[in-house]
Structure formats: C-alpha cells, structure tokens
C-alpha cells in the first residue's frame, strides 16, 4: 500500500453502506406491503391450531405468501420441538 492509498482508504464510503441498508429495508417493507390484510390473523389462527397438538413458540411458525406471475404460494414453515 502506497503512502497516498493510506489517506484514500481512511475515508469510508458511507454512500455504499446507505445503498445496501436501503436495498434490504425497502425489499422487506415491500414484501409486507404486498401481503393481504388477513395475513397476521391467518398466521395467528394457524399457530393456535398447531398449539392444540404441539407446544410451539410464536416465532417457530412462519407464514409467507409468494406471488408469481400466474399463481400465489402460501408457504407454511413450522419448526417442531425435539
């Protein structure tokens, strides 16, 4: 590393940090925005049904709706305790 490079690299490129943080948060918020209104309640009721049989935590059930061009896929992911 040359003497000049030392000064250059001491200045952090914060713009690229901003870009990456924004890409993540905007993608996440768009995903939630496209969900139908009933999703939180659907998730709660599915959780209640599973809990009648197995003791699972709130965060052990993940419900996600993925939209493709011609169909939507409701993905249900339950992690059961050992």
């Amino acid at each position: 590393m040359s003497f000049l490079d030392y000064f250059k690299s001491s200045k952090k490129n914060t713009a690229s940090i901003a870009r990456e943080r924004l890409q993540i948060i905007v993608a996440h918020e768009r995903g939630q925005r496209e969900q139908p209104d009933y999703m939180p309640q659907l998730q709660q009721e599915i959780l209640d049904v599973i809990r009648r049989y197995v003791a699972v935590d709130q965060d052990q059930v993940q419900v996600q709706l993925d939209k493709n061009d011609d169909c939507s896929v409701l993905e249900l992911n339950v992690t059961l305790p050992e």
Partner: peptide
C-alpha cells in the same frame, strides 16, 4: 459529495425506488 462516497448517487436512488 457523491464523488467522495458521502452521498447516494442518482443511479442508486433510481434503482432502489
């Protein structure tokens, strides 16, 4: 400030939005 890496570039904002 964009050239100094301190500010989001117009292309970045366009791409994100």
């Amino acid at each position: 400030r964009v050239e100094n890496g301190e500010m989001l570039a117009v292309e970045d904002v366009k791409e994100i939005l």
